[in-house]
Nucleic acid binder design. Structure first.
Length: 178
DNA sequence: ATATGGATGCAA
DNA sequence: TGCATCCATATT
């Protein structure tokens, strides 16, 4: 599931009409009640409830009180699971992304816009207000990849539990990863 | 290496 | 209520 999202296009339209989009180049899987690194790893809680619902909706939460992380609920209802989108190759409206990222909109590195889960959420203005939104809505759309692209498989990053599970996926030789 | 700083979940 | 923890980032 996390593999399938590699190469998909994520497009966000704000209420003010601003559009940003990017190609998904890095993902991580958090699946099942037996995954201690997942928010569902301690069972159903108010926060993890959405991961038990139907797939294809957004799960967005605040981490470290500072950054938002954007996930895609990935498993059938009753089975908890989500895919963390860790990096995008920015496609649409890069200067706006740069402004949101507090970078100089006329002098910035595209490599620094969406190369991390907090960065891409900031660049696409994805906050908890989008939590539980359908990913085929007017606000957020995901266009699936038509082919499975070459990718690497590694352990997940930034976690302290179940660090050995190889559930991080990234497009091979894509420079926009984190 | 370190500061940042809000929400969550669990214990008390 | 209090408190440890947290799927990170920017800055030193």
């Amino acid at each position: 599931m996390a593999r399938d999202l590699l190469g998909a296009t994520l497009l966000v339209t704000e209420t003010d009409g601003a559009v940003t989009s990017g190609l998904i180049v890095e993902t991580e899987a958090y699946t099942g009640t037996d995954d201690p690194a997942s928010h569902a790893g301690r069972g159903r809680t108010p926060r993890s409830e959405i991961m038990y619902g139907p797939p294809g909706v957004a799960y967005i939460y605040l981490i470290y009180g500072v950054h938002h992380c954007f996930n895609v609920v990935s498993e059938p209802a009753q089975t908890p699971g989500a895919v963390l989108i860790r990096a995008l190759e920015p496609l649409t409206n890069l200067p706006l992304m740069a402004t949101r990222r507090h970078l100089n909109p006329t002098s910035y590195s595209p490599l620094n816009l969406c190369s991390g889960p907090g960065k891409l959420s900031q660049a696409l203005a994805l906050t908890t207000s989008f939590n539980a939104a359908s990913l085929q809505s007017s606000a957020i759309k995901i266009y699936p990849a038509t082919t499975q692209l070459p990718h690497t498989t590694t352990p997940r990053r930034g976690i302290t539990k179940a660090v050995d599970r190889p559930w991080r996926f990234a497009l091979t030789n894509n420079p926009f990863t984190s």
